[in-house]
Amino acid sequence: MTVAQPVLAASRPPSRLRKLWNSISIVFQSRIGTAGLVVVAFWVIIAFVSLFWTPYPPNSSLFVQNLPHNSTNWLGTDHLGRDELSRLMQGTQVILLKTRLPGENRIAIPGGVAIWGVLGSLLLGSVLGLNAGYRGGWWDQVIMQVLDALIAFPVIVLYLVIIAALGQGDLVVIFAITITGAPGVARLVRGLTLDIKTRDYIRAAETRGESKAFIMYREILPNARGPLLVDAMLRVGYAIFAIGTLGFLGLGLPPPDPDWGNMVNEARRNIFINQWAVIFPSLAIASLVIGLNLFADGLREEITRYQK
């Protein structure tokens, strides 16, 4: 005796892209988030454009040194007479678009150093946080004590230690970002796990005799993705900042590709001759970091509203 139901056309489950877009598009509800997104999108577009076209070859000394902005070189030139705008554009690539593998043959994989670094810290942090939060007891004690010890180190010291030990290179920077970011992610995930594991659907999974790994990665993790997404956005910002800092200290991404931090560092020596060569890369770093922060803020605001 089943009751007749209105027969709807079998609705196809929405595609993954569609779902992703749905969750991103809520950002447009928030003005701050939209502003952030516009800034971030601007830099991403610049990065893609720079793959195919820059006004001049970024590494060739074609012009007079230390020119201020003018009609030929829109942002002026640096101390070696290279076009500042071209270098700035090219500088987005290593952060957002490509990672150069070590070796002579110059192979690059897609995804910038900042992106991979944050993905790495998310991965490591989530695994640690889930295990600490869900298993509890000694797991929790040991993992959190170690991570707390790691957090106690000043981040910059940690970077220096890693780079000093492993040498310069894109992968090393990714590794450094991963190591320094993971404790924060782990704390976040652990907190979320402690909350989510009290829900009835986790009880239901346990009464099905599911393995601990299944419960952690399939039942708990998907429900932590909202806060994780927000955290990831913020972390990309921090990572860019860190890369800038390392570049400034001369320990960042190796040449030949221009690196914003390195650009600031080199221009600094001629700051009294040409202050613009310092200001533009600094502005670039600042705007991208602020853009990501605003975007994350908007996302957080809308995600929490959405959940209510």
């Binding site: 089943t2 009751v3 139901q5 209105p6 709807l8 079998a10």
Partner: peptide, 8 residues
């Protein structure tokens, strides 16, 4: 259907 919820 036994729960009186449709396929949709």
């Amino acid at each position: 259907q036994a729960m009186r919820l449709g396929e949709n």
